[in-house]
C-alpha cells in the first residue's frame, strides 16, 4: 500500500516541480516586459558602441590633415604579435637638421589581439581605439591598413 501512495506522491511532486518552472517561462511569455534582444543589423544607424570600445586602432587626424605620430617605434616594440610596423624616412627640416619623419604606419588588423599596449605606451598619444567593429572582408590583404593619411604631416606642438 505504501508503495502505491509513494508512486502517486512522486507523480504529483514531479508535476508540481515542472509547473514551477513552466510558471516562470509562462510569465515571460504573457508579459515580456522589455525586449532584451538587440535588433542588430536593423539598428545599425542608431547603434552606438561604448566610448572605450576596442574596435580597431586608428590614428586621429585633425582638419589640417595633421597627426601626432613622431615615428619613434615604441608601439612597434610593445606590440606582442608584430601587428604594427613603423616605416620612417630621414629628411631635413626647415633648420637644416635631419629629423625622422613617419612614412607609413602599417597596421595588420588580422594579427591584432586588442591588448591595448600600443595605445597605452604611445608617448605622444598618436594612436586611439576606433569604434568600427564590422571588419569582415573577402580578401585578407584588405586587413593590412596604413594608418597615416596621404599627405599628412606632424603637428607643430608635438616634439619629434
Amino acid at each position: 500500500m505504501n508503495s502505491v501512495i509513494k508512486y502517486f506522491k512522486d507523480i504529483f511532486y514531479g508535476v508540481s516541480t515542472l509547473w514551477a518552472g513552466m510558471r516562470v517561462t509562462g510569465k515571460y511569455f504573457v508579459s515580456p516586459g522589455q525586449i532584451v534582444t538587440q535588433k542588430y543589423p536593423e539598428n545599425r544607424a542608431t547603434l552606438k558602441m561604448a566610448d572605450r570600445f576596442k574596435g580597431e586602432i586608428i590614428m586621429p587626424h585633425d582638419d589640417n590633415n595633421q597627426h601626432r605620430c613622431t615615428g619613434c617605434g615604441i608601439c612597434e616594440m610593445n606590440c606582442p604579435n608584430g601587428s604594427i610596423e613603423v616605416l620612417t624616412n630621414r629628411v631635413p627640416n626647415e633648420d637644416g637638421k635631419v629629423v625622422r619623419v613617419i612614412d607609413k604606419h602599417v597596421y595588420h588588423l588580422s594579427m591584432c589581439t586588442f591588448c591595448g599596449l600600443c595605445v597605452k605606451t604611445c608617448p605622444s598619444d598618436a594612436l586611439a581605439f576606433g569604434q568600427k567593429f564590422e571588419h569582415a572582408v573577402f580578401d585578407r590583404h584588405k586587413l593590412t591598413k596604413i594608418l597615416n593619411r596621404e599627405g599628412s604631416s606632424l603637428k607643430k606642438e608635438v616634439k619629434s
Partner: peptide, 13 residues
C-alpha cells in the same frame, strides 16, 4: 528564478 527553473526540477534532480 534560476532555482525555480532548474534546481527544483524533478528531471534535473
Amino acid at each position: 528564478e534560476y532555482d525555480q527553473l532548474l534546481t527544483g526540477n524533478v528531471i534535473f534532480q
